[in-house]
Design a protein around this nucleic acid. Sequence first.
DNA 1: CGTCGATATATGCATATGCATCTAAATCGG
DNA 2: CCGATTTAGATGCATATGCATATATCGACG
Lengths: 153, 153
Amino acid sequence: MATDGESPVRLAAETWESLFRAQVAVMRKLQAGPAFRKVALNEYDVLFTLSRCPSGWLRLNELNDNVLLSQSSLSRLVERLEKRGLVARMPAPDDGRGVLLKLTEAGAELQKDIGREHVRDISGLLGPALTAAEQKELKRLTEKLRHSVGARH
Amino acid sequence: MATDGESPVRLAAETWESLFRAQVAVMRKLQAGPAFRKVALNEYDVLFTLSRCPSGWLRLNELNDNVLLSQSSLSRLVERLEKRGLVARMPAPDDGRGVLLKLTEAGAELQKDIGREHVRDISGLLGPALTAAEQKELKRLTEKLRHSVGARH
DNA sequence: CGTCGATATATGCATATGCATCTAAATCGG
DNA sequence: CCGATTTAGATGCATATGCATATATCGACG
């Protein structure tokens, strides 16, 4: 039944491990750069996500879907960012429990600064590793994976 | 100059973001499973890496390449695993500074138990998302990426 | 309308993590 | 062979994180 000596389960496991290790390797390099001296990875991730938000405002729980952090940790991370003047909070108008977030001027500025450097670093890592066609395929496959996994329920 | 309206730098950034988000999405699901009730992700990662080590023994600093943890954190993580009786330490015979690690019986047992469940979960996530051919391609691309990134210096 | 379960966020507390630094051993240059 | 530099790990200390839980609002239902 095996198509070529490898079970589907094993293939999935190996694929995941490879994806995970590649992520670790790239992340290690990125974190070593000077960009992450000012904000930690997860903090930057929050700033980045907010910067990409069309309306400018984003709910805390929606933010939590993007970041690999528990709800409580995200709550405190945002608290720190607020204390540093990088994000602003506002009670959600349509839901008394909710909190809306957006970048302050300073936060947007910082995100852009770090983002530029970040993007350069990424390009320096992926560029020599994969052709443009390969990057597109990698992007397509990971998008498909993310979509499928996130779609459950 | 742009081949189809997208700069290489932008493509690299988008590819990396997609890879990263996919990793977060999958990891979130995996962590939610009962497998990670007994050991944290990084702890399992150490057990797994040790289980795959041909000689059985692995240097602490080599281990550190696999895991996204600082040296000091890994040192303490291993200390905890040792206290729990899951790994054993031994001074490196050829280097008085070094430490060698291997799984204990209990550690190997636990790794296998969790590993089985882990692999099932992974298969349940990747299987419906990507065809076998796509998984192979994803594996190939991430291996290439990891190799290229890790190879620097 | 009042009660009940679900959802969004915050907080107390124990633990994990990272940075800077320390110690010891290896390596290099004379 | 000796001193200087580098490398492997461990440790003090401040901070970040997660789990369990608290608080408040929401939504459904009788």
